[in-house]
Design a protein around this nucleic acid. Structure first.
Length: 601
DNA sequence: GCCGTTTTCGGCCCGACTGTTTTCAGTCG
C-alpha cells in the first residue's frame, strides 16, 4: 500500500517534528477542507463555494504525488480543482500548522456540532435551526430535544422527523465502539511497525477480529513474544499513537487511540507464542471447538500450552512453535485466520477439504472503476497507468449512468464516446495490458436499466447497481434486482445490499433469492472492496459458491489510490472461503474475456 | 471558490423521496 506521507521510524518522526514543526499529513488537509465545507453549509454560504472546498478535499485525497510536500513548497499550481484561494490555504496550513480562515470559522460553532452531520436525516439546514433555536450542539442534546418534544415544535419538524432522528441516534449508539477496517488498518500498521522496532520484542503480531479479516472491529489485539514484558509494556503505553492509557500491567496493557479505538497488548513467552496467537485470534466459537477437540485426545488447551487432561492420557506433542504445529497436533490441516469463525472450518480441516484461499497476488485485473467522466478524480489514462503500476493486466472502467445525476452519470452519447476512447487507448498499450469498456448502469425502480439493450451490447461488460429508492419492501426490492440480473447484457451485480458500514443498513432484500437468480442466469456477483461497503457480505459467499455463482472483486475505485482497496476485498473473499477459481479477476488476459461474454451467448 | 474565456464574470449537477405542508423545503444519492 502506498503512503506518501509515511514516516519510516519513530525516531525520524520525532526528529521531523522538531525540525519542521507540526506533523502534517494528507489526512489532516482533507479533514480541514471538509470541515470548512460543513461550517460554510451551517452558515448558509454559497453552495458552489462549499462545493469548491469539497472538490478540493477530494483532489488532495487522491493526488498521486506527495501533496503535503507540494503544498509546503508552494508548488500546487496547475492542479485542477485547487485555485488561488485553496492553494494559499493549503500552504498556510502545512507551513504554520494552522489556518486562520478555519480558526475564525470554527469558533462560531462548538466542536461537537460535527457529529450531528453523522445523523442520517439531518442536513445543514436542520442542524442550523436546531442550534439557533434550541442550542442543540451534540447528539446528546439532539436526543434530549427529540424526547422532550421541543424538536417537534420547530418549523419544518414533525412527529415523523423526530421519530426518524431517534432511530438514527439509536443506530449510531449501537455502533459507537465499532470501527471500519480501513480506519483500524492504519493504526495496525503503525503499531506493528513500532512494536517490531523494539529490541525486547522477538515476535509481534496483530490478533483478534482484525487478523480474522472482519469488516469492522471493536478493538485491536496485539501479541508480543518477549523475555522482558515490562519493557515492552512500558514502550507500548507511551507510544506516539497512545492518546490515553486504560490499563498498564506486567503482561497486559490497554490504550486508546485518538479516534477512540482501544488497543490491547499481551506479552507471552516464546514457547507460549503459538497457543497465545491462536487463542487471541479466536473467534470464541472456533476456540471452543478447538478446546473440545483437544479434550477428545485427552489434552486441555489454553492460551499458554497444551497439557495432559489426566494422568491416564498420552502426553501432548512438543515442539509447537507455530499455529501450524498446533493444528497438526490436533489432526488438522492449517486453518487460515480468515476461516476461524466456528462455521465448519474444523471439520473441513480434518477431512482435508479446506479451500486454497484466493490471495491478493492472484488478481490479474479488476472491474468497476470510475474516472473523471463521472465522479472519479482520475482520468482514463491515469487509472490505466495506476493499474499497470500495480501489475494488473486489465482494468474495467464502469462509470455511472445518467440516472446518477449527482455523480455526473454518462448519457448514451458520452458513453459511446468513452467506449471509442477506450478502444483508441487500447491500441496504444502493448499486449500485456487492456482497458475493458463497461458501465455501472443504474437499476431503475421497476428493475429496468438506465441504458437500452443496444447500447449495453456495445460494452465489454455491464455492472448493474441500485442507487436509489431504498425504501421498497423486501419483495419489491428483490423483484427489482432479479429483473435486472435477468437481462442478458448484465454481466455482474454491483454492491448487492447497498449497505454503508456503520452508517446505513442494507435495504430490504432477499439475498438468497438474488443469489439463486444469479446462479440461474449466469450473472457474476460483485464483492465490492470499498471498506465502506464490503458487499456482498462474506457470510453469503459460501452459499453463492455452492450454487456456482462467480465473484468479481471490485474496488469501486474513484481515484488511483482507490485501487488499493482490492486488499480489503481479498480479505473478505478469503472469509467467504473463495479460492481463485471462483474469482473471475484472477483469470489472465486472454481468458477473462470468455467469462465476460458467456452470459450473452 | 473554481473554471474558462468571445478575459474578468457567469455558470457551476439533477431528480426522487419524504414529511410537512396546501405548494415546498430539506435530504440524499
Amino acid at each position: 500500500m502506498r503512503n506518501d506521507d509515511a514516516l519510516p521510524l519513530p525516531v525520524l518522526y520525532i526528529a521531523a517534528r522538531w525540525l519542521i514543526g507540526p506533523a502534517m499529513t494528507r489526512e489532516i488537509l482533507v479533514d480541514v477542507m471538509e470541515r470548512i465545507a460543513l461550517l460554510l453549509e451551517l452558515k448558509g454560504e454559497n453552495p458552489f463555494k462549499i462545493r469548491a472546498y469539497r472538490t478540493g478535499a477530494e483532489v488532495v485525497r487522491g493526488h498521486p504525488e506527495d501533496i503535503v510536500q507540494l503544498a509546503r513548497e508552494n508548488k500546487l499550481e496547475g492542479i485542477k480543482g485547487l485555485g488561488d484561494a485553496l492553494r494559499d490555504k493549503l500552504h498556510e496550513l502545512v507551513t504554520t500548522g494552522s489556518l486562520g480562515f478555519y480558526d475564525k470559522l470554527k469558533v462560531q460553532f462548538p466542536e461537537s456540532i460535527f457529529e450531528l452531520f453523522e445523523i442520517s436525516g439531518l442536513g445543514p439546514k436542520k442542524i442550523a435551526a436546531l442550534y439557533k433555536e434550541l442550542k442543540v450542539a451534540s447528539v446528546v442534546d439532539l436526543k434530549r430535544v427529540c424526547e422532550n418534544g421541543e424538536a417537534g415544535e420547530l418549523s419544518g419538524f414533525g412527529a415523523k422527523t423526530v421519530e426518524k432522528l431517534l432511530e438514527s441516534i439509536s443506530f449510531r449508539e449501537k455502533h459507537a465502539d465499532t470501527f471500519r477496517v480501513d480506519d483500524a488498518a492504519t493504526a495496525v500498521t503503525e503499531i506493528l511497525e513500532y512494536l517490531r522496532e523494539l529490541p525486547e520484542a522477538s515476535r509481534v503480531e496483530v490478533a483478534g477480529s482484525f487478523r480474522r479479516g472482519k469488516e469492522t472491529v471493536h478493538d485491536l489485539d496485539f501479541l508480543v513474544a518477549t523475555k522482558k514484558p515490562a519493557a515492552v509494556m512500558e514502550a507500548f503505553v507511551h507510544g506516539p499513537f497512545a492518546a490515553s492509557i486504560i490499563a498498564h500491567g506486567e503482561t497486559k496493557s490497554s490504550i486508546r487511540l485518538s479516534n477512540g479505538l482501544q488497543c490491547d497488548l499481551r506479552a507471552v513467552k516464546n514457547e507460549e507464542w503459538a497457543f497465545a496467537l491462536a487463542y487471541f485470534t479466536g473467534s470464541k466459537e472456533h476456540n471452543i471447538q478447538m478446546r473440545s477437540r483437544a479434550l477428545a485426545s485427552g489434552w486441555t488447551l489454553n492460551e499458554y500450552r497444551l497439557d495432559s487432561d489426566s494422568p491416564d492420557s498420552s502426553p501432548p506433542p512438543g515442539n509447537i512453535n507455530e499455529e501450524r504445529d498446533l493444528h497438526r497436533a490436533l489432526g488438522l490441516d492449517y486453518i487460515d485466520p480468515a476461516l476461524r469463525e466456528g462455521m465448519g472450518e474444523i471439520e473441513a480441516a480434518e477431512s482435508g477439504n479446506l479451500p486454497a484461499l484466493v490471495e491478493l497476488e492472484n488478481l490479474r485485473g479488476t472491474f468497476h472503476n470510475h474516472t473523471t467522466a463521472s465522479d472519479g478524480s482520475a482520468t482514463l489514462e491515469e487509472m490505466a497507468e495506476a493499474a499497470i503500476e500495480l501489475g494488473l493486466q486489465y482494468l474495467g472502467i464502469a462509470d455511472h449512468s445518467k440516472a446518477s445525476f449527482q455523480a455526473n452519470g454518462l448519457d448514451e452519447d458520452r458513453l459511446l464516446a468513452q467506449i471509442a476512447e477506450i478502444r483508441r487507448l487500447n491500441a496504444g498499450y502493448d499486449d500485456g495490458f487492456r482497458l475493458f469498456a463497461g458501465s455501472e448502469v443504474d437499476i431503475h425502480k421497476d428493475g429496468s436499466l438506465d441504458f437500452p439493450d443496444e447500447v449495453l451490447a456495445e460494452l465489454d461488460y455491464v455492472v448493474a447497481s441500485v442507487h436509489n429508492v431504498f425504501t421498497l419492501s423486501e419483495g419489491e426490492q428483490t423483484a427489482r434486482i432479479i429483473r435486472a440480473v435477468e437481462n442478458p447484457n448484465v454481466t455482474m451485480l454491483g454492491h448487492l445490499t447497498g449497505r454503508l458500514l456503520l452508517k446505513r443498513d442494507s435495504y430490504a432484500v432477499n439475498v438468497p433469492a438474488v443469489i439463486d437468480a444469479c446462479a440461474a442466469t449466469g450473472t457474476i456477483i460483485e464483492l465490492n472492496a470499498s471498506p465502506w461497503r464490503l458487499d456482498m457480505d462474506w457470510r453469503w459467499w459460501r452459499m453463492a459458491q455452492e450454487k456456482g455463482v462467480l465473484c468479481s472483486i471490485n474496488p469501486d475505485a474513484h481515484s488511483t489510490s482507490g485501487l488499493q482497496d482490492l486488499y480489503y476485498g481479498v480479505r473478505i473473499a478469503r472469509k467467504g472461503w473463495l479460492s481463485r477459481r471462483q474469482v473471475i479477476n484472477c483469470l489472465p488476459l486472454g481468458k477473462v474475456e470468455a467469462v465476460l461474454a458467456k452470459k450473452r451467448k
